[in-house]
């Protein structure tokens, strides 16, 4: 009797969330997929069509895609180049300093990214702090805000911690013995870096790369605020289709394409690293 009662409770407790997640997670995604593969017809119904996806391959939209990918890749590379030395330096520090610095790196991630982006508007604006400074040292003012460079700065600024933390995690796993062994066998500093440190930190590089690339390629806020809405990115295209143009079919197709790009980049990481460092590099 008792076991049956408990088994019944088991069955009961799992249903609410199955129901909820079907309604609010699965069905919305299914709806997007459905929208992306249909077109309204004049009689009032919908018909299957791949035209939304085909439309994406028009030059205008390919350019949007290209711009997003290039900006995201550039931001990722800058984060990697700036972040790698930083992570290496932190790993070599004493325990107390290491923890303080890690905390200092994590903290900005919790400041609303809208505010982090806005803070660059304050710095880069025509009358902004940067131009005041340039004027003060006698240089001509620059108009950086509302440009591609501003968007790039915004991306690097927002996502740099996402790069440093996983890099730190994988670099801190490399045993001192491995480096010492290489040195004992006559490797110089450059060889040690190229043949020991770099290959062993590859999981961190991959995780960091995805964690910067994913939000960078999907953002629409950074480009809207710092780019002034001139250079459209994929995120802006989706926003525009859903909120102003009202072509949900095309918007859905673009959303699906964005999801595919992100799934591919995540798959690359999980294949290489079995997702382990992703788990650790997240949130904290």
């Amino acid at each position: 009797m008792r076991t049956r009662a408990s088994r019944q409770t088991r069955n009961l407790l799992q249903y609410p969330y199955i129901l909820w997640s079907t309604l609010f997670i699965v069905i919305p995604l299914a709806l997007i997929i459905w929208y992306s593969f249909t077109q309204p017809v004049q009689t009032g119904g919908f018909q299957f069509s791949t035209s939304n996806y085909r439309r994406f391959f028009e030059p205008v939209y390919l350019r949007v895609m290209g711009r997003s990918l290039i900006l995201a890749i550039e931001a990722t590379l800058i984060c990697l180049i700036v972040g790698y030395p930083a992570a290496m330096i932190i790993v070599r520090l004493g325990l107390r300093w290491r923890n303080t610095l890690l905390l200092l790196l994590v903290l900005p991630m919790w400041i609303n990214f809208l505010l982090r982006t806005y803070s660059w508007m304050v710095l880069l604006g025509r009358q902004g702090v940067l131009n005041q400074f340039l004027e003060w040292i006698g240089l001509p003012p620059q108009s950086i805000l509302y440009s591609r460079a501003a968007v790039l700065i915004g991306m690097v600024y927002n996502f740099l911690p996402f790069m440093i933390l996983p890099l730190y995690t994988s670099l801190s796993r490399i045993g001192k013995e491995q480096i010492e062994a290489a040195e004992d066998l006559g490797a110089n500093r450059f060889d040690v870096f190229r043949r020991i440190i770099l290959p062993l930190s590859l999981p961190g590089i991959l995780t960091g790369t995805t964690m910067v690339f994913m939000p960078a390629v999907s953002t629409f806020v950074i480009s809207a605020l710092l780019g002034g809405g001139q250079d459209m990115l994929i995120g802006n295209l989706i926003e525009q289709q859903f909120l102003s143009t009202g072509d949900w079919h095309f918007g859905s197709a673009v959303s699906i394409l964005m999801m595919v790009i992100i799934l591919i980049s995540m798959a690359i990481v999980s294949v290489t690293d079995k997702g382990r460092s992703l788990e650790e590099g997240n949130l904290w």
Binding site: I18, T22, P28, L29, I32, M214, S218, E239, S255, M258
Partner: peptide, 24 residues
């Protein structure tokens, strides 16, 4: 299966979660 579904809003770009809920 349910954990994979549970992870969708965590991993999906917010913009996709946003527009899909709006559609729903």
């Amino acid at each position: 299966i349910i954990l994979a579904i549970n992870n969708v809003p965590v991993l999906n770009p917010d913009i996709v979660t946003g527009v899909s809920l709006m559609t729903l």
